Computed example of a mutant assay.
Amino acid sequence: MNIADIWGEKEHILFIIQIALFIVQVLSLFFLVLYVWKTWQMASSTKESAKASEKMIEEMKEARDQESAPYVVPFININKHMMFFGIKNIGKSVAKDIKIRVKPELMSSIFGDKIHDLPLIKNGLSSLPPGHELETMFDVSHIYLNRDDFPMSYLVKISYEGGLKKELRDYEQVLDLSVYKDLIPDEDMNLKDVVKSVEDLSNYDKKISEELQKLEENVARGIWIKNPDISISYAQLDYASWKLIAASKLRELKVILERMTSKSPYFYSFDIKNRIDSIIGQILVIASNYPLEADSKIGEDLNSFAFNVLEFSRSMSFLFDRRSEGFNKELSKYILNIDDLLKILI
Rank of each mutant, 00 (worst) to 15 (best):
L215D: 01
L212E: 00
V195Q: 02
D193N: 08
E199G: 02
Y239L: 09
E210Q: 09
K192A: 12
Y234A: 07
D229R: 08
S233I: 13
I184Q: 01
D238E: 15
P185V: 03
S209Y: 06
Q236A: 14
D229L: 06
D200V: 01
L191H: 03
P228S: 04
V219S: 05
N227V: 02
N227K: 10
I232R: 13
A240L: 11
E199R: 05
Q213R: 13
V219M: 15
D186V: 07
N203I: 01
A240E: 15
K207N: 14
D205L: 13
Y234Q: 13
D205P: 05
L183Q: 10
K207T: 14
K206H: 06
E211C: 06
S231P: 15
Y204H: 09
D200T: 03
L212M: 14
A235H: 09
A235S: 12
E187M: 11
L212V: 00
I230W: 00
D186Y: 10
E210K: 11
V195H: 01
K206S: 11
L191C: 02
V219K: 14
V198G: 01
A240T: 14
K214G: 09
S233G: 07
N190W: 13
I223F: 15
L201W: 09
D186P: 02
Y239K: 14
K206T: 09
G222F: 03
V219Q: 14
K207E: 15
A220D: 10
K206C: 06
N203D: 03
S197N: 08
L191W: 08
W224P: 00
I225F: 13
S233E: 04
G222Q: 07
L212W: 01
Q236M: 11
E211W: 14
E211Y: 15
K206L: 15
E217F: 05
N218W: 11
A220E: 07
Y239G: 02
D193Q: 04
Y234P: 01
L212G: 00
R221S: 15
L201E: 04
N190Q: 08
E187H: 04
K192C: 03
D200Y: 06
I223S: 02
Y234I: 12
S202G: 07
Y239V: 10
K207F: 14
Y239P: 01
Y204R: 15
L237W: 08
D186N: 15
D229I: 00
D193L: 05
Q213V: 06
L191S: 03
I223Y: 15
K206M: 12
I230Y: 00
E199K: 05
P185C: 05
P185K: 12
E217H: 08
Q213A: 13
P185G: 04
I223W: 13
P185I: 04
E187Q: 07
D229C: 03
K226F: 06
L215A: 05
R221D: 15
D205I: 09
V219A: 09
K192P: 01
W224Y: 11
N203T: 05
W224L: 12
V219P: 02
E210M: 12
I225T: 08
I208Y: 06
